[in-house]
Amino acid sequence: KVAEEHPDEIWCDSLKLGNLQLVSKLKNPSDSCSVDVSTVWWEGTGSKESRIITACEFTVSLWKSLDNWQWRKVYTWHFTEIPVLQIIPLWDTCNLVCVALGHLEIREIRLLFCSDDDECLKQSLVKSGNIKAVLGLRHKRLVCSNGTLHDHQVDLMTFSGSGRSKEKRTLMSPEETILAFAEVQGMQDALLGTTLMSNIVIWNLKTGQLLKKMQIGNSYQASICHKAYSDMGLLFVVLSHPHGKEIESMGSPIFRLIAINPKTALSVDVRPYSLPQGHTGRFLDGEVKDNLAAAVLTSGTIAVWDLFLGHCTALLLPNSDGNWSFVKWSGTDSCLLAGQKNGSVFVYSY
């Protein structure tokens, strides 16, 4: 009877934490502001294991797993001049990770690794300039777009196993600012991007060709692409709209799934992913992995959606330590890594 009278209230209560279970907490004692978290495969004394990597303003730290979901900080890379903005994981690599450094925009991308000979921490400059978007891809590759309208360039870099050398090739530029890149699940040679002028662009990574530039309408202005899936001749793309206006009839969609026919460049809305009633906020940071999307909202809450089910499956409200400021899916298992500016990272199993 209560559920009938107050369906939204009951649903929200059951949503809090939802499918998430807290398994571990890392506390970075550094005084500086935490900015990002990710996971990386790391090979130490003969065994390959998943480790957590955290970024503060001027340090990046690697955490080794101990027994009972405890973590110990084992390495820290230090940066002196430009602050760290984000971690860029290279998903199927071992002992390699990239970071983006800059103030408001990315100025440098650096590769972090550990020397084989003396196990010393190393870092090397991969790219510098006015970098607009970057993404780590499978097979030790990284794509980034840089420059202004007149000298705009899209570079694809492939690293060697040790990270010491790299091979660079240029992808054809769409001649406008790229806001984000996304890999296409089910089509490993395809790369997708969203642009400032509401276009979705597709490249062939093998040939470097720009295959299509598709207008997706004004309601999608400044969209960020997170993930794309190729199925039955269509591209299904998950977008977020950090600067989007609220559409009353749809509530406040944080993510949106659209279907595009790449042959005709026609697209349709498939599904909005909105917050449950009683919750508000705009997209601040987020990530999509397989069928799960997670976002930190301006309200300081983290929300999780199952893209197949179509609704929010978990809410992490701000805790006594404060608001959430970044969220990532673990690349190596089904864990959610939720971070706060004060250096706390909470690991939730999903």
Binding site: M172, L210, L234
Partner: peptide, 23 residues
């Protein structure tokens, strides 16, 4: 999603667009 909304669908769109795009 139907062909009336999205136009003719091709399962080989990636190969077809690659052969049509400038090298």
């Amino acid at each position: 999603c139907s062909e009336s909304d999205l136009g003719p669908i091709s399962l080989n769109w990636f190969e077809e667009l690659t052969s049509e795009a400038p090298p």
